[in-house]
């Protein structure tokens, strides 16, 4: 079973504060153990919204809104990671992505947190490829599991183009939020809310994809994760959906 565990940004993250050393160390230990158990499939983090962009397509026109911004419709339907030369190139791909979704759509674009941003290694010399996440926002179509065939086709073509040009790192589709759970931690106490989530105003902080045998196992892992972060955090558990091109083809 593959799950995407997605944590939300809090005020400290938005302020760009580096987490305390102890938190980084304990998190490193948990992640290390997860790698050692062969359970970590993927992980990526986003910077504060001041470094992100929203690309909004409305009636064939594409508008780019620069951060910082408060969260509004922040429920993701898919996450696509790309590796490009610079930010402008990333924006071009994000626009193509938004357009592929047809008519009205919104995607978020942000640089990925790199190991050197956390002080884990020195930034490599020379020109480093820029890695971005394109976060496709959920809409009625993705949430109901009825994505129009034309959109599916356009997305498949776009992903193929990304792959062909060596830009595509990975593409994850998330199952509709009706199949998801939201874990709200307040002072280390967990409340579980079952999807669907009509309102999702918390910005995405980052996510990891885990291979676990049961939902219970994912919840227990997330408990430990939340404990390390201080016990006040919102985390969504999203089952992995069918790959983008084929989402809801059946």
């Amino acid at each position: 079973m593959q799950y995407v565990v997605m944590h939300k940004a809090d005020a400290a993250h938005e302020a760009g504060t580096k987490p305390p050393t102890e938190v980084i160390e304990n998190m490193g230990r948990l992640i290390g153990e997860t790698i050692h158990n062969g359970q970590l499939l993927l992980g990526a983090g986003l910077h504060a919204s001041s470094r992100r962009l929203r690309v909004v397509a409305r009636g064939g026109r594409c508008e780019v809104q620069a951060g910082p911004y408060p969260g509004r419709n922040e429920l993701p339907a898919a996450i696509v990671a790309i590796r490009v030369g610079d930010r402008d190139e990333a924006i071009e791909w994000a626009k193509r992505y938004a357009n592929a979704l047809g008519g009205d759509a919104e995607v978020e674009l942000g640089p990925q947190v790199e190991p050197w941003d956390l002080g884990k290694m020195k930034r490599p010399e020379g020109k480093v490829p820029a890695r971005f996440l394109i976060v496709q926002k959920a809409d009625a179509a993705t949430e109901s599991g009825k994505v129009p065939p034309a959109v599916r086709k356009a997305l498949a073509a776009l992903l193929a183009a990304m792959a062909e040009q060596g830009v595509l790192e990975f593409a994850e589709t998330l199952a509709p939020s009706s199949q998801s759970k939201r874990l709200l931690y307040r002072d280390h106490r967990r409340t579980v809310v079952d999807g669907p989530f009509a309102e999702s105003k918390e910005l995405i902080g980052g996510f990891c994809k885990l291979q676990m045998r049961s939902l219970d196992e994912v919840v227990e892992w997330t408990d430990r994760y939340a404990r390390i972060l201080g016990g006040n955090v919102e985390v969504d558990l999203r089952p992995v959906g069918e790959p983008i091109a084929a989402a809801n083809a059946r």
């Binding site: 498949a156 069918e242 084929a246």
Partner: peptide, 28 residues
């Protein structure tokens, strides 16, 4: 995901929709 069709029938390598391949797994 790409190696079976909607009815569960096998899809040969050449006919597979490669955009359905799991890029993260390929990367790993």
């Amino acid at each position: 995901f790409a190696r079976t069709g909607p009815a569960g029938e096998p899809v040969l390598l050449d006919d597979q929709d490669r955009s359905r391949w799991d890029r993260a797994a390929i990367r790993r």
